[in-house]
Amino acid sequence: MLGYVLRRISIMVPTLLIISIISFVIIQLPPGDYLTSYAAQLRTMGDIVQQEEIDALRQRYGLGQPVYVQYFKWITGILLRGDWGQSMEWQKPVRDLIWERLALTMVLSGVSILVSWFVAIPIGVYSATHQYSIPDYILSIISFVGVGTPGFMLALVIMYVAMTAFGLNVGGLFSQEYLAAPWSWAKVVDMLKHLWIPVLIIALGSTAGSIRTTRANLLDELNKPYVETARAKGLPEGRLVWKYPVRVALNPFFSTVGWSLANLISGETLVSVVLSLQTIGPMMLRALTSQDMYLAGSFLLLLSTMTVLGTLVSDILLAWVDPRIRMEA
């Protein structure tokens, strides 16, 4: 098992390296470099541009030098010094900007995925064991609509409803007074109060998807001979379903934790823009539009890293629950 995990991790390293290259190249794609536009921007704002300052920055990131040199400086900075570069727009080191946002994104995604499982698995099991019953039909229709409704549209609708029916603004993760406040217990409580609407919105899509997957997988398993064996033993039906077919039907679930996490983060990006949450999405959008390349690049790299880690977790989970895979390892 340990060897299996180590091997997975060893595959992960080159993957992350290539992803960092891809992220860097993508961020380099827009024409012009950011220092030129930065200087231009400062000039229009009437600031006196310190040529030395610009030159120092130019030197630091190797701008004007070949792309691979720039990449090398960027990645060694991250790996050796934890220096993610400088955000031009915020005039701050990137590392001071990203961690809080990343943490909030992870909290949001993690809670959403847990919520979606806690809701989806029992519903999926019910739907499959009561196939073609009226509740099954209703749940199927709801989950179909849920799959087809993108989160950001749902966010729009919920904002509209909350606005017109309750006069509430459901955007944001914090109340006004805690927005800039340092972290405290009260701020955490305040966040939890705001968290449930985005969680519900983000979880809806993946819940609906998970219901369909659970139902379909379980329907395949329910007719397998080993279920009949268990029934012929005299096991009570409920215990039987949860111990045998559900266990097997959930395996593909564990194997796709990584992907569903990626999907969740993906969908969360847009939902966060709509609801103006203090997560990665809106800041990344702004960084992209203003060509704040180190900030945008760091986000792309971090989100991909999260997915890679998610895949690792799902591989380990799968090996843990499925002896057949443990064997191969």
Binding site: P225, E228, T229, A232, G234, K243, R247, D322
Partner: peptide, 25 residues
């Protein structure tokens, strides 16, 4: 009552030993 008979009084040996045992137990 039926469950107490199934497996205790009447037992079944099924057709496909390959598929008739749960793969994860």
């Amino acid at each position: 009552e039926m469950r107490s008979i199934r497996g205790a009084e009447i037992a079944l040996v099924p057709q496909e030993p390959m598929m008739s045992l749960s793969p994860v137990h």
